[in-house]
């Protein structure tokens, strides 16, 4: 079920450039989608369609890949990406409570974006930084030894 997406100007020329850089070869579908997502911060429907056309793949196959792998997002993402590590070591050190606290403060569930498009909350299964767990990554910066108290300062609001 495709959800209703906001209308916006999407420059598909960038998609074509990426396709060309990989020689329009079907086997590079995944790296192509990764590079394209890096441009738009998510994968709009038009972009996915363009990739499918460019690689001469059935649209259903491309959607199959996009929905299979976790790193692809079919929804627009917020300005700030907050990722909580739920790896075993972080779990044992209490990361579920941090997710709960972020859910309470942002009023969204993992995988969702706030109404004002400021924050997207996600979880990941192990970043490999277990020594400083529990870990939260905000816009690429790692914050170690998180606690429910520190969540407040992380969000930069009271």
């Amino acid at each position: 079920m495709l959800q209703k997406e906001p209308t916006m100007e999407i420059d598909l020329k960038q998609v074509d450039a990426v396709l060309s850089s990989y020689g329009r070869r079907k086997e590079f579908l995944i790296p192509i989608l990764q590079d394209v997502q890096a441009l738009y911060n998510w994968l709009p429907r038009e972009v996915i369609r363009r990739v499918a056309e460019g690689l001469e793949l059935p649209l259903i196959d491309v959607y199959g890949v996009v929905t299979f792998y976790k790193s692809f997002s079919l929804k627009p993402r917020g300005k700030h990406l907050i990722t909580v590590c739920l790896g075993t070591a972080c779990h044992v050190r209490g990361s579920p409570r941090i997710v709960d606290e972020l859910q309470r403060k942002l009023k969204i569930k993992p995988g969702e974006t706030t109404q004002d498009r400021e924050y997207t909350l996600e979880t990941v299964n192990c970043l490999g930084c277990c020594a400083i767990g529990p870990i939260v990554v905000k816009d690429g910066t790692y914050y170690g030894q998180m606690s429910t108290q520190k969540v407040v300062s992380l969000l930069g609001r009271e």
Partner: peptide, 20 residues
């Protein structure tokens, strides 16, 4: 691209081939 099962060798190969 974010799939634990791709650590399994046949799934990994499928992923390199551009599939699920």
């Amino acid at each position: 691209a974010g799939a634990f099962v791709c650590g399994e060798e046949t799934a990994l190969i499928a992923s390199i081939e551009g599939k699920r």
